[in-house]
């Protein structure tokens, strides 16, 4: 097995195991730490897929931004009572069965369609189109996807106003 393959399976294993820990931990702070580990291994997988810019964005935005926000909110919310309560809701058994069915279905479809549905892999020369990564993404973002980019910035503005409005204390 090649070095790159070992790295991938290692990262994938870490990502899946810590994702499982995210949804099973009682304490949200522990969940957040495991989610950070998952996100970090996903970032490294991006790096392996030659998406350096995206890996950096994942680290800065997801881990350095969103997860900090999560931890900040966890510290603001009083959790002592919630920690002592039951962590799973009543429909957990039905949900589990449904999710297992979904997982089997997904794995089956991916496994059966692995050769036919995807078509041939891009060769090394086609991968040159991804490099230099930052420049390529910049071109795509500001030329082909200019309108979605502007809409995304609008979305962020709306989200910012909404978040401030909702978290604000009512001024009587």
């Amino acid at each position: 097995m090649l070095f790159a393959q070992i790295i991938f399976y290692l990262l994938a294993g870490v990502a899946v195991v810590s994702a499982l820990l995210v949804i099973t931990r009682r304490n949200p702070v522990h969940s957040a730490i495991y989610l950070i580990i998952t996100l970090l291994s996903v970032a490294l997988i991006y790096l392996q897929l030659q998406a350096e810019f995206l890996a950096a964005v994942q680290i800065i935005l997801y881990i350095g931004g969103i997860m900090v926000l999560f931890l900040f909110v966890i510290m603001l919310v009083r959790l002592d009572e919630a920690l002592r309560q039951e962590q799973f809701n009543r429909q957990w058994f039905v949900a589990g069965v449904a999710v297992v069915v979904l997982a089997v279905e997904l794995i089956g479809v991916i496994y059966l369609g692995r050769d036919t549905a995807l078509g041939p892999e891009a060769g090394p020369e086609a991968l040159k189109a991804l490099q230099p990564n930052t420049e390529r993404i910049g071109e795509a973002l500001f030329q082909t996807y200019m309108l979605p980019f502007e809409i995304a910035s609008l979305l962020l503005l709306v989200a910012m106003v909404g978040a401030v409005l909702m978290a604000r204390r009512r001024v009587e």
């Binding site: 350096e52 810019f53 680290i59 800065i60 350095g64 990564n133 930052t134």
Partner: peptide
């Protein structure tokens, strides 16, 4: 690396 500065900022913000 190509996106080096972003990585430096990102890692240090961890």
């Amino acid at each position: 690396v190509n996106a080096g500065l972003l990585f430096v900022i990102g890692i240090s913000s961890l």
